[in-house]
């Protein structure tokens, strides 16, 4: 019963909102006058998700959006624009009107791989976006099968050193975050893996559980269920401090390898010309939403660490990661 009323209210609210946008329109251009009372009551804001409905990204957006919507008093619609390895959706955000009514995921570091590779024909780069903050992080871990003969990171990496190019490692996609992070590891530690690409995080996890690959690297969320059930053993988390999420997993630093943290951030951005006041308003609203207890609970449920990173820090991090990753991508491109 409660359900039904909730449904009708949403439908009603949405139709009212639609009617209002219809009348109010988007006639206002990107002048700062529009920014003073942003967002207009009942305006519709699009949250662009550059992947399919139901993808990890998408589910997180659908958790956070209602809380932001409540705070802003505007209607936030999660819009999926899949295609071109996220380039289509990111293009859309970069080229949308800079009025704060369109923002989207610019996850770091995955967005770097999109525009640093010229063959992807991305119509954007770092300067096309202004971040409004990042509401969650996903630490990067290395996992092996529970029966693996490698009991520690050192054993694993020693084996790699002993037989370069022999030890297999799974990724969730070619030229994706996993792949780039593995190349970073190879470069920084002088290792040589046999990298095998799978189609998704789930396929990669299946390959670890079945023992088809020797180990895998990836965001902790994709391993979380199997880590909890004991099917996958996590050897390390690539962070400076242990993750509260997987507190018993040692950091890479503690194992004696000096590697920068690799966590990915669920960052959101607006087109770069958006007025400062609008950006600030969106940032404060996203922060509030990200710090709502119910939202945090749901994010944790989705095996994602709710961590608030302010917009300014996201910008800085974006720049740092770009410097770090660019050479790796250039090298990947040369190999083709």
């Amino acid at each position: 019963m409660k359900k039904l009323t909730a449904l009708t209210t949403t439908a009603l609210a949405a139709s009212v909102a639609l009617a209002l946008t219809g009348c109010g329109g988007q006639a206002g251009s990107t002048t700062s006058t529009a920014a003073v009372d942003f967002p207009k009551a009942g305006a519709t804001i699009e949250w662009i998700v550059p992947s399919a409905a139901g993808a990890g990204n998408d589910i997180l957006a659908r958790i956070v959006a209602p809380a932001m919507q409540e705070d802003l008093g505007a209607n936030i619609k999660v819009v999926n624009k899949e295609g071109g390895s996220q380039v289509v959706g990111l293009n859309y955000v970069a080229q949308s009107k800079a009025d704060g009514l369109t923002f989207g995921y610019t996850n770091i570091p995955s967005i770097l791989g999109r525009y640093l590779d010229p063959s992807k024909k991305a119509a954007f780069d770092r300067s096309s976006f202004t971040p409004i903050g990042s509401f969650a992080t996903n630490s990067v871990v290395i996992g092996v099968n529970k029966d693996s003969k490698y009991k520690s990171l050192k054993e694993l990496f020693d084996a790699v050193k002993a037989e370069p190019g022999k030890i297999t490692v799974g990724t969730d996609s070619r030229a994706g975050d996993d792949h780039i992070n593995l190349r970073l590891l190879e470069n920084q530690l002088g290792l040589d893996f046999n990298i095998v690409h799978y189609n998704s995080g789930a396929d990669k996890v299946a390959a670890i559980v079945s023992g088809e690959v020797d180990f895998a690297l990836g965001g902790v969320s994709s391993f979380f269920g199997q880590y909890k059930s004991g099917d996958i053993k996590l050897l390390t988390v690539i962070e400076d401090n242990t993750s509260p999420f997987v507190p018993d997993v040692p950091t890479m630093k503690s194992a004696g390898y000096d590697v920068k943290p690799m966590a990915s951030n669920f960052a959101l951005s607006v087109p770069s010309k958006t007025p400062k006041e609008v950006v600030a308003k969106l940032e404060s609203s996203l922060k509030k939403a990200a710090e709502t207890a119910a939202v945090q609970e749901k994010l944790k449920g989705a095996a994602t660490q709710p961590t608030w990173v302010p917009a300014a820090e996201v910008s800085k991090m974006w720049e740092e990661r770009e410097t770090l990753i660019k050479p790796v991508i250039d090298e990947l491109l040369k190999q083709q």
Binding site: I59, I63, G225, S229, K298, G301, A302, A303
Partner: peptide, 9 residues
């Protein structure tokens, strides 16, 4: 996962 259940054994 969103409902706090971890799929798996």
């Amino acid at each position: 996962t969103m409902n706090g259940l971890i799929p798996g054994p």
